[in-house]
């Protein structure tokens, strides 16, 4: 029952995120960082939220300042990480000030808005991108190391 619910929830938002995203070909983003990571969250499981933030913190700690660039991309149920009232909001703000970027899937946001009847308020540190899955593709193409904890 629980598995079915989670699967359905995940499928709906993942499908919306993938199928309706208009591919956006952004200009090549230049970076002086030696390492670039894209961290992906689309899970319902709350423990994954803490895990992905820990990943970002550990990467920042592992490299000298400026040597690593990190972007966390959220879609599907994972977008809850970037809700304004998320319990990790303070930590997200701290990571953002350390240079970590947060990208929120616009397609997921639209789907959630339809379900809720209002648009969920996002963390001001999160930037809405047209499609989460598309954003990950763009970053991987640019050479980012893809990690899904």
């Amino acid at each position: 029952m629980l598995t079915n619910f989670r699967s359905m929830f995940f499928f709906i938002f993942a499908f919306v995120g993938m199928a309706t995203a208009a591919p956006v070909v952004s200009a090549a983003e230049t970076s002086l960082a030696d390492y670039q990571y894209v961290l992906h969250i689309s899970d319902m499981d709350p423990s994954k939220q803490e895990l992905i933030l820990n990943n970002a913190s550990n990467l920042l700690d592992a490299y000298p300042p400026g040597a690593v660039e990190i972007e966390i991309v959220a879609y599907g149920p994972g977008l809850r990480l970037m809700f304004a009232n998320n319990v990790h909001a303070q930590r997200i703000d701290s990571l953002s000030q350390s240079g970590v970027k947060f990208s929120a899937c616009g397609n997921t946001l639209n789907a959630m808005t339809k379900q809720l009847g209002y648009e969920p308020k996002l963390n001001p540190d999160a930037k809405v991108v047209p499609g989460g899955i598309v954003r990950i593709g763009e970053l991987v193409k640019q050479g980012y190391i893809y990690v899904k904890p």
């Binding site: 629980l2 619910f5 989670r6 319902m44 499981d45 709350p46 939220q49 803490e50 809850r80 990480l81 809700f83 009232n85 998320n86 319990v87 990790h88 909001a89 303070q90």
Partner: peptide, 24 residues
């Protein structure tokens, strides 16, 4: 308050962490 303190039994027992709770 955004988060419950370690001894805040009212919040720890009566609420779930915002944006990070499981359905079950």
């Amino acid at each position: 308050a955004g988060t419950a303190g370690a001894l805040d039994w009212l919040r720890l027992q009566g609420t779930e962490p915002a944006g990070a709770s499981a359905p079950v």
